[in-house]
C-alpha cells in the first residue's frame, strides 16, 4: 500500500540535510512500528522517497514523503504514532493512502510555491514593488543564465513563473492562496533575523520537478539583475508552502494524491 505523508520542517531542523532527514524518518518508522515494505537484496531498505529535497536552511510547511507499507494502518493512529517519534521542527500533518497505480510524489511533482524574504534586512533604497512591476507585470522574456555541472545556457524563465506577488511580512496572509495555513509558526523569527512587518516579502509559484525545475533563488537573482542591484544569496530567506502535480484541472496539491 502506498502512503503519502505530509510534514513540516522548521526551527533547528532546517539545518538537517535531506539525506540525514531521510535517515531520521527511517528510524522514526521503526520506532513507530509502521509496517514498512522493504526492497529486495542482502541489505533491504525501506521503500521511502521525498517529493523534492529541501535545501539546508529552508523551512517548509508542505513537504512530502511517500512510503510503502505492508499492512493497513488507521491514518489517524499512524499520524499519532509518528508524531510521538518526531522532534521539535518536524510535524506530521497528514497520512493519506494513494492508489496503487499512483505515481510517486517525486515523479509527479510539477510545481511548488514559496514565500521569500530577506533574512538580515534589505537595502531600503531599493524599491522592490516598482522592480516587481517591471519584472513581472510586463510581458516579454526574462532571460537568465542557468548553470549546471556540465553547461551554461540562456533560458527564459518567464513561462516557469506561474505566479509572483509582492507584499510585506506584516501582511503575508494577503500573499497566500486561500485556505493556506498560517506560515508564522514555521518561519524563523529568532535573533539575527530582521523580519519586520514592513519588510518586503514575495510569493512565488514556480514550476518544479525533474524537467522545468526553477528555484526561487534564480528568480530573485534575475529580479536583482533587472534592478541593477547586488544580489546576496546568503541573505535570502525561503519558506516552501506546498508542492503540486499537474492535472487536467490545473495544479493540484500533492496532499490530494
Amino acid at each position: 500500500m502506498k502512503v503519502r505523508i505530509r510534514f513540516t520542517k522548521s526551527d533547528a531542523l532546517r539545518y538537517v540535510g535531506h539525506l540525514d532527514l531521510l535517515r531520521f524518518f527511517q528510524k522514526a518508522m521503526r520506532r513507530a512500528h509502521v509496517p514498512m515494505a522493504f526492497s529486495e537484496g542482502f541489505h533491504p531498505h525501506q521503500i521511502m522517497s521525498f517529493a523534492s529535497p529541501l535545501g539546508v536552511g529552508i523551512t517548509s510547511q508542505g513537504e512530502y514523503l511517500d512510503i510503502e507499507i505492508t499492512e493497513q494502518m488507521d491514518p489517524s493512529a499512524a499520524m499519532e504514532a509518528l508524531n510521538a517519534q518526531m522532534v521539535e521542527g518536524v510535524t506530521i500533518q497528514s497520512f493519506t493512502y494513494l492508489d496503487d497505480q499512483a505515481k510517486n510524489s517525486m515523479a509527479s511533482l510539477a510545481a511548488a510555491d514559496y514565500l521569500v524574504y530577506f533574512k538580515r534586512g534589505l537595502d531600503k533604497s531599493l524599491d522592490y514593488v516598482d522592480a516587481y512591476t517591471q519584472f513581472y507585470q510586463t510581458d516579454g522574456a526574462i532571460m537568465v543564465t542557468k548553470k549546471t555541472k556540465k553547461s551554461e545556457r540562456e533560458l527564459d524563465i518567464r513561462p516557469l513563473i506561474l505566479d509572483m506577488k509582492v507584499g510585506t511580512v506584516g501582511s503575508m496572509q494577503d500573499l497566500l492562496p486561500a485556505e493556506y495555513a498560517d506560515p508564522t509558526p514555521y518561519l524563523p523569527w529568532e535573533d539575527g533575523f530582521c523580519l519586520n512587518d514592513s519588510d518586503v516579502m514575495f510569493y512565488l509559484f514556480l514550476t518544479s520537478g525533474s524537467t522545468d525545475n526553477l528555484k526561487p533563488e534564480l528568480v530573485m537573482e534575475a529580479l536583482h539583475q533587472k534592478m541593477g542591484a547586488d544580489f546576496d544569496a546568503a541573505n535570502l530567506g525561503i519558506h516552501r508552502l506546498d508542492m503540486f502535480r499537474a492535472t487536467e484541472a490545473g495544479y493540484q496539491s500533492l496532499s490530494k494524491g
Binding site: 533547528a12 536552511g57 521539535e88 523569527w189 529568532e190 539575527g192 533575523f193 546568503a234
Partner: peptide
Amino acid sequence: MRKLALSDEILMQV
C-alpha cells in the same frame, strides 16, 4: 522554540 547558540548566518556557512 529553542534558541541556538550560533546564528543562522554561521550555521549556513559551516
